[in-house]
Amino acid sequence: MIRAVVIGLAATVAAIAAEVGTDKVLALRQGHSTAAVARATEARKTHEINVPRIKDGVIKGYAVMLLSYTVDLSALRTAAMAPDSILVDEAFRYVYDDDTIDFDHLDRFDLARMSKALIRAVNARVKADVVVDVGVQEFTYAPISDTHGRPGP
């Protein structure tokens, strides 16, 4: 008889604990989804960015980039300035100043590191966390020998 009562109490406690745990998990999920919805973002693109590669005082070629980025619209309203032209400037500076880029093997280039550096630099210049993410849509290199001899527009 005592054994049946103990088993009944254990089953009751387990059922109550499961219901309380389920309620807490559902409340956490709802809280996360509400927080995610509260942050309104917008995807944007830069125009094509051409960065000259200069070695020994001579232009050796051009790095060509096309970036996409996500902005936080609420932070954009309070920012000192729009991040659009600043992102282009920071991307140009990053590639122009980085002498370690091996343009013959762009597959080895750390695009994630560049994206993080661009986010930090742009947000620092606009004095707000406006840029959420930067993606690289195109990153190629055109040697100067490929650009000479092309017919003009």
Rank of each mutant, 00 (worst) to 15 (best):
2 I>L: 02
3 R>N: 14
4 A>P: 00
4 A>I: 12
4 A>C: 04
6 V>I: 13
8 G>K: 09
10 A>K: 06
13 V>A: 15
15 A>C: 01
17 A>D: 06
18 A>P: 01
20 V>W: 14
22 T>W: 14
32 H>Y: 13
33 S>Y: 13
33 S>Q: 15
34 T>Q: 15
43 A>K: 12
44 R>A: 11
44 R>V: 01
45 K>C: 04
47 H>P: 03
52 P>V: 00
52 P>Y: 04
55 K>H: 13
55 K>I: 12
56 D>Q: 13
58 V>R: 14
59 I>S: 07
62 Y>A: 07
63 A>C: 11
64 V>A: 07
64 V>I: 08
66 L>G: 00
67 L>M: 08
67 L>Y: 03
70 T>R: 15
70 T>I: 15
76 L>K: 07
79 A>H: 02
80 A>Y: 00
80 A>D: 12
84 D>V: 00
86 I>G: 03
86 I>T: 13
94 Y>M: 13
96 Y>S: 08
98 D>W: 01
99 D>N: 08
100 T>S: 10
100 T>V: 07
101 I>N: 01
102 D>L: 07
104 D>W: 01
108 R>P: 01
108 R>M: 11
110 D>N: 14
111 L>H: 02
113 R>S: 13
117 A>F: 00
118 L>I: 04
120 R>Q: 10
120 R>I: 07
121 A>Y: 03
121 A>N: 07
122 V>E: 00
124 A>L: 04
125 R>C: 05
127 K>E: 11
129 D>P: 03
131 V>P: 05
132 V>E: 09
133 D>F: 11
135 G>Q: 12
136 V>G: 02
138 E>N: 13
138 E>H: 05
141 Y>W: 03
142 A>T: 11
143 P>R: 09
145 S>V: 10
145 S>F: 07
147 T>L: 15
148 H>T: 11
152 G>P: 07
152 G>F: 14
153 P>A: 14
